[in-house]
Amino acid sequence: MEKTDAVSALGALAQDNRLDVFRLLVQAGPDGLSAGAVAEALGLAPNSLTFHFDRLRAAGLIAVRRDGRSMIYTAQYEQMNALLAFLTENCCGGVSCAPAAECKPARKRKSEIA
């Protein structure tokens, strides 16, 4: 990951609602959640949620796909892992150390997401 990409991702996450949205989508796993489910879970108005989704998408942290009439949003784990790797690249003062754990999401049932 390039420094400019890291700054973009960190900037997108540097807001309460966007951080909540991203964390919820990470928890949801690769199946993602509909925009309505995200709005309901976080108590956000749909019009402001669209703005937050756009910022996260521009940073490459989430993706969207259409499923019938619904828009389904998913976390982009590869980009998240790249950001974590960038942030921890020199965690041991330049000495090689154990790599940061990578998130490899398992599919969850919607009933498991709180």
Rank of each mutant, 00 (worst) to 15 (best):
V26D: 01
N90G: 08
Q15I: 05
R55S: 11
L61G: 09
S96H: 13
F53E: 00
R55V: 10
K110F: 10
D54A: 15
R18N: 05
L33F: 03
G32S: 07
T50R: 12
E102P: 03
L84T: 06
A28M: 06
G68H: 04
A28E: 01
V64D: 02
E2W: 09
Q76Y: 02
E89L: 06
T74D: 02
D67S: 12
F22Q: 05
R18C: 05
D20C: 09
S34K: 07
A41E: 05
A75I: 04
T88K: 04
R107T: 14
A85L: 02
P30E: 12
L25D: 00
Y77L: 10
K108A: 10
V26T: 07
C92A: 14
G32M: 05
D5M: 10
L10C: 14
A100Q: 11
V21I: 15
Y73T: 01
P46G: 02
H52P: 01
K104G: 04
L49T: 00
A100C: 10
L42P: 00
Q15R: 14
L13M: 14
K3S: 15
L33E: 00
E78T: 12
V95Q: 13
P30C: 02
A75W: 01
G93T: 05
D20G: 04
V21L: 05
K110M: 09
G32I: 02
A101W: 06
A114Q: 14
S34D: 08
A98K: 11
L44T: 02
D16P: 09
L25E: 00
V7Q: 14
D5I: 06
D5P: 02
N47D: 13
H52S: 11
C91A: 15
R65D: 05
K108H: 12
K3L: 13
L19C: 12
A12N: 09
N47M: 11
L61Y: 03
S8E: 13
Q79S: 15
F53M: 04
A82D: 04
V95F: 14
L33G: 03
P105Q: 07
Q79D: 07
A75Q: 03
K110C: 03
V64H: 01
A39M: 01
H52N: 15
F86V: 05
H52M: 05
G94P: 09
D5Y: 04
G60L: 09
L10W: 08
E102S: 13
N81E: 03
K3R: 11
N81T: 08
